[in-house]
């Protein structure tokens, strides 16, 4: 399955300290070819530090990282030839037009057939006029240009830091389509985002980082199934609310008329819950898996306690 594929990004005990402050510590992460990997965490958790270390803007204080099997420090220029990057804070060269900027990038990256044609295709998809000056662009327009720059050379790996910030919902949809196309071509995406519905919609796996430590790496499917689920029974007549509360792993039991809703955590026995409910007259059952956002909030809520 996913784990058997070639690791495009691999970190071994990656650590970075800013003086006495440890930004990330012992991060062990593998991102595989052809997947979209979401990197989640609150502000200051270490997402951007990890990305900057991978790009060799800053150096590991300990541990190491490889991309395409190449060392991120020693082979950084070779690696960067094969990746596309979109930073959170995007500064474009604003005395140029979009096309002038792309022509310059084409030279920096080495002449590639179809580079400008691909940029033009992306610009049309993202509804961006490449002949306009890059001066005074809105956040969303800058983001579009940033995406064109990151994608135009068809990189094997995309590293995107908050890629859809400032994009309107229609453009976010276009971005999702582009990411699916990238994955379909066997290319890899590593993205950090605060937009959890988006991560849930496009990512195959996510890594959750907290206080510089990688707390979990899991497929979105497993994460949303394994963490907890909501269960709602509709009874005809009496309902065993208090008995549900007494069961292991059953939390947040609430009743509204004939409906009883509860949250089942991982240690709960679904079989025990169903058997208890079956002693009464059940007219309907609904099982909801949580959204990634709920999991994320529950994850951090649990850790904070």
């Amino acid at each position: 399955m996913v784990q058997e594929r070639e690791a495009v990004i691999q970190t071994q005990n990656l650590t970075h300290r800013y003086g006495k402050v440890t930004a990330i510590e012992n991060v062990n992460l593998a991102v595989y070819r052809g997947e979209i990997f979401g990197f989640l965490g609150p502000n200051g958790a270490g997402k951007t530090t990890t990305i900057r270390t991978l790009l060799d803007f800053i150096r590991p204080s300990a541990g190491s990282a490889t991309i395409f099997g190449l060392d991120t420090v020693r082979d950084s220029v070779t690696i960067r030839r094969r990746i596309g990057y979109l930073p959170t804070e995007l500064t474009l060269l604003d005395n140029w037009t979009g096309i002038q900027y792309l022509r310059w990038l084409e030279q920096v990256r080495g002449a590639q057939d179809g580079y400008l044609a691909e940029a033009q295709r992306l610009a049309e998809r993202l509804e961006f006029d490449l002949s306009r000056s890059l001066k005074g662009l809105s956040t969303g327009m800058k983001r579009k240009m940033g995406l064109i720059v990151a994608l135009a050379h068809k990189p094997e790996l995309l590293i995107l830091d908050e890629p859809t910030t400032g994009l309107d919902p229609l453009m976010q949809q276009v971005f999702h389509e582009l990411m699916h196309e990238v994955r379909a071509e066997g290319r890899t995406v590593f993205l950090s985002s605060h937009n959890l519905p988006e991560v849930e919609a496009i990512c195959d796996r996510v890594g959750i980082i907290r206080d510089g430590h990688l707390e979990a790496v899991e497929s979105v499917t497993n994460l949303t199934r394994a963490a907890f689920r909501w269960l709602t029974f509709t009874f005809d007549g009496a309902s065993p609310q208090d008995e549900f509360r007494a069961l292991l792993g059953v939390h947040d039991v609430t009743a509204e008329g004939s409906r009883v809703r509860m949250r089942l955590s991982g240690e709960a026995s679904l079989d025990a819950v169903i058997k208890l409910a079956a002693r009464y007259t059940v007219t309907d059952i609904e099982i909801e898996h949580p959204t990634l956002e709920e999991i994320f909030l529950a994850y951090y809520g649990r850790k904070e306690r």
Binding site: L55, D56, V77, R80, Y85, P87, T91, V108, R109, G110
Partner: peptide, 14 residues
């Protein structure tokens, strides 16, 4: 400070 170095050093430029 203005983050333009990020874009520059993300390119294949040592």
């Amino acid at each position: 400070r203005d983050h333009s170095l990020d874009m520059m050093l993300s390119l294949p430029v040592s």
